[in-house]
């Protein structure tokens, strides 16, 4: 018995690490492909509400984002606490929306332009006044597909 144990410990081979770089590279490429760098810092709080009837947005390139919420603490002194719109990385007014939509539209191929969806990430604490203004601006700009971003919850009984 003792002899057997001794023999085993002597000949135990080291695990080959030669394929380790390959595995790591595979993981690396996977994360490189799915990574989307956060392109804009959010200057407002957007805690979206919960809803049960959700649709998944499939194609990221066909979606543009409008954020509405109250400025975070860092910007409260400068911008107050009233709800604000954020387009890209700066504060905006409803009048800026047509230009913003047009800029996004240009990045989309012509055949897919009628499938563009505007995703609105709106804080649940915001009042509807500013949301209504944005909706009117979207309608005037001819952007009629709208998505109210929300977290999933169970349907009520």
């Amino acid at each position: 018995m003792a002899h057997f144990v001794k023999k085993k410990s002597n000949t135990q081979p080291a695990i080959s690490t030669a394929s380790l770089p390959d595995i790591v590279f595979m993981l690396l490429f996977f994360f490189m492909v799915i990574t989307k760098m956060r392109d804009s810092e959010l200057m407002i709080k957007t805690e979206v509400p919960q809803a049960s009837e959700l649709t998944k947005l499939e194609k990221k390139s066909l979606v543009n984002f409008i954020f509405i919420g109250r400025p975070v603490d860092k910007y409260k002194d400068l911008y107050g606490t009233k709800p604000r719109i954020q387009l890209g990385d700066k504060f905006a007014e409803p009048e800026d929306i047509p230009l913003f939509l047009e800029q996004h539209r240009l990045t989309v191929s012509e055949g897919e332009r009628n499938q563009i969806i505007t995703s609105m990430k709106i804080d649940s604490d915001v009042t509807m006044g500013i949301v209504g203004d944005v909706k009117t601006a979207l309608r005037k700009a001819g952007q009629l597909k709208l998505n109210y971003s929300a977290h999933y919850r169970e349907r009520t009984k």
Partner: peptide
């Protein structure tokens, strides 16, 4: 790998789809 792991945000956007009237 660690860099990309940290910067990755697998954000799935879901929401209530609405069609506005023209």
């Amino acid at each position: 790998l660690i860099f990309f792991l940290v910067t990755t945000t697998i954000s799935e956007d879901k929401g209530v789809l609405v069609k506005l009237p023209p």
